[in-house]
């Protein structure tokens, strides 16, 4: 037993870890079961929602964010924020590329951001 008062880290009760573990196993099975059904356009959002719940559990309990001091939280949130900016600006570009005026699109070839690889063999495509 440790008597040193200066070292008083909070020890998380095992039940938190055990329940998180069981919840993660359950959610993994759930996400596989859900994937067997077709919800059309909702497939990706549903899969990402389950993944987000799983990620939050790992982050909050296993990584101990729930018991963490404020600054770690600021670090994490700012990282997520920059990821958000990254994807938002990229999609502001990609999603609006097809909205070009036909007259503009033709000379600049704006509709094709990626050179397509034809006939399934990329190796022969190099010029």
């Amino acid at each position: 037993m440790s008597q040193q008062g200066q070292h008083s880290h909070f020890i998380v009760p095992v039940k938190y870890y055990l329940r998180t573990f069981i919840a993660l196993l359950f959610l993994t099975v759930l996400t596989v079961v859900i994937a067997q059904f077709n919800f059309g356009a909702l497939n990706l959002p549903i899969a990402m929602l389950v993944a987000l719940v799983k990620a939050s559990l790992v982050l909050m309990i296993f990584m101990g964010m729930r018991w963490e001091k404020g600054f770690t939280f600021v670090l994490f949130i700012s990282s997520i924020l920059f990821f958000g900016i990254f994807i938002a600006l990229i999609f502001a570009d990609i999603d609006t590329r097809k909205q070009t005026d036909p007259l503009e699109a033709k000379p600049f070839g704006l509709v094709s951001p990626v050179r397509p690889i034809s006939s399934g063999n990329g190796a022969s495509e190099h010029h």
């Binding site: 996400t31 899969a47 993944a51």
Partner: peptide, 11 residues
């Protein structure tokens, strides 16, 4: 956790 549904479970 994110790679699994993104690559293996595309419905």
């Amino acid at each position: 956790i994110f790679l699994f549904p993104l690559f293996y479970l595309i419905g």
